[in-house]
Each structure stands twice: as structure tokens, then as C-alpha cells.
Computed example of a mutant assay.
Amino acid sequence: MLEIKSLNQFYGESHTLWDLDITIPEGKCTVLMGRNGVGKSTLLECVMGLVKVKSGDILLKGESILGLDAEERPRKGIGYVPQGRQIFPMLTVQENLEVGLPIRDKGDRQIPEFIFDLFPVLKEMLHRRGGDLSGGQQQQLAIGRALVVNPKLLILDEPTEGIQPNIVQEIGDIIRMLNEKMGLTVLLVEQKLPFARKVGDCFCILDRGRQVATGEIQELSEGLIKEYLTV
């Protein structure tokens, strides 16, 4: 589904991502892991066109997307939930969801009903401002907004950060359902190991901007956790 090939990225003189070669298999949930500051969010921003790539390539279903502006990449079937949710606090829930409608086909520019099936609270709060929602409700809104574009690949950057435990469990169940029953490929940045093990099929660990380990989620050993994930 998504291939990162020999990717290098710099912030000024700082070499942030080093020759990354990562494959995100279609139909799977891949968890991108690593301590804070190793380049996980930067990699996602490269995929979404929010930061420039120095060299290498990013392929979606075999087609390079590097030449596309950030506004064009969702049209290729990528939904993105950034770290911190980044909803529009002064817009209503409905208006936040409608932001993604222009990406959809002209004859189908309505908020999909299945989003309200996944997140009933959003239907109840359609006319409430996004900034008035709880953190968990805002995260549900952010995921719902990403789903409006009808993605084939869903990218989530730490969706459990600052979320109450009951909503964390609900989000985990929804990610698994989107992956298993609706066929979405998922790329997830996550720090919480129990959550990663629950939702992930595969893992990839970054350390100082380099890929250091990858495999099936059951191969995530205590040795790897101690060396690359424990703070």
C-alpha cells in the first residue's frame, strides 16, 4: 500500500530521517514506534506533504506521491489524524466534518452515515463547537473527519494521547473494525504498548531517525522494548 524508499529529511542542518526503507502492507495495521523525538511524526508529515523530503521516494500503490501538494494527497485516498487532533475549535462538529467533503466525488458530498454509527456522540453534538468537546470527543471528531474523505489508508499520530481510558478502548475497537471489516490499511504512531499489541498486526521501530527493527507484532520482544522503547 505505502512504500518509503531511501527517504532522507533535514531540518536546516539537522539530518532527521536517515535512508528509511519502510513498507506498510495493504490491509494491515502497522504500528510505528520509538521514543520521543526519533522522527515518527516527521515521517508522517513527509507522507502527507507537510514537510519537504531531501531525497528518496514515497509510493502509494506503486505511484510516487512526492510531486503532489499536501492538499492533493487526501484525494489519493489518505486520511490523516495529526498529533493533538487539530480540529477547528470555533467550528461546529458538523462544520469540522464537512471540511473533508470537497475531497469526495461531486455526486456524493454528504457526511457518511457510518461515521455516526461509529461515533454516536458526534451526531448528538453536531451543532456544538469543536472546542467545547472533551479530549476524547475531539479525538473521535478528528478520526471522523479523516474518514469523511473515504480513505484507503488511515494514518493516526498518537490517537490515545491525553484520552480517558474508556475512550482509548473504544478507539482501539474502532481501529480494528476499520481495519478488519472495512479493509482500511492503517499506519499508527503509538507509545502505549498494550494498545499497540491490541490493534497492530506489524511494527516498525525508529531510533534517531533510522529504522532499527520491524516484524509481526508478536515478534516485538522484551529485548527490543528495553533497548528502543523504554524511557
Results as ranks from 00 to 15, higher is better:
1 M>G: 02
3 E>A: 08
3 E>H: 10
4 I>Y: 05
5 K>G: 09
6 S>V: 07
8 N>M: 03
10 F>S: 00
11 Y>Q: 10
11 Y>D: 09
12 G>T: 02
13 E>L: 01
17 L>I: 11
18 W>N: 06
18 W>K: 13
19 D>W: 00
23 T>N: 14
28 K>S: 05
29 C>T: 11
31 V>E: 07
31 V>G: 02
33 M>S: 05
35 R>G: 11
36 N>S: 13
36 N>W: 07
40 K>A: 07
40 K>T: 08
40 K>R: 13
42 T>Y: 05
43 L>I: 14
43 L>Q: 11
44 L>Q: 02
45 E>K: 15
45 E>A: 15
46 C>F: 10
47 V>L: 13
47 V>Y: 07
47 V>K: 05
48 M>W: 15
50 L>C: 04
50 L>I: 14
51 V>C: 09
54 K>Y: 06
54 K>T: 08
55 S>H: 08
58 I>E: 08
60 L>V: 14
62 G>I: 12
62 G>H: 14
63 E>M: 11
66 L>W: 14
66 L>N: 14
68 L>C: 12
71 E>H: 14
72 E>L: 14
73 R>N: 11
75 R>V: 10
76 K>F: 12
76 K>C: 04
77 G>T: 10
77 G>R: 01
78 I>L: 15
85 R>F: 06
85 R>L: 00
87 I>R: 04
88 F>T: 08
91 L>M: 14
92 T>N: 08
94 Q>I: 06
101 L>E: 11
104 R>L: 06
107 G>H: 09
109 R>W: 00
110 Q>H: 09
112 P>G: 01
113 E>N: 07
114 F>K: 01
115 I>P: 00
115 I>T: 01
121 V>K: 13
124 E>Y: 09
126 L>V: 03
127 H>L: 05
127 H>I: 04
130 G>V: 08
130 G>H: 08
134 S>N: 00
134 S>C: 13
136 G>Y: 01
136 G>H: 04
140 Q>R: 11
142 A>I: 00
142 A>M: 06
145 R>E: 12
148 V>W: 09
154 L>Q: 02
154 L>H: 05
154 L>I: 12
156 L>P: 00
156 L>H: 05
161 E>A: 02
161 E>M: 01
164 Q>W: 03
164 Q>Y: 00
165 P>D: 02
168 V>R: 12
168 V>E: 01
170 E>V: 02
170 E>Q: 03
171 I>W: 01
173 D>V: 03
174 I>T: 03
175 I>N: 09
176 R>C: 11
179 N>Q: 09
185 T>R: 01
188 L>I: 12
189 V>M: 06
191 Q>K: 05
192 K>L: 11
193 L>Y: 12
194 P>K: 12
198 K>L: 14
199 V>R: 04
201 D>F: 08
205 I>R: 06
206 L>K: 10
209 G>E: 05
211 Q>Y: 03
213 A>D: 11
213 A>P: 10
214 T>G: 06
215 G>N: 06
215 G>K: 11
218 Q>E: 15
219 E>V: 13
220 L>E: 12
221 S>M: 15
222 E>G: 15
224 L>Y: 14
227 E>N: 15
231 V>Y: 03
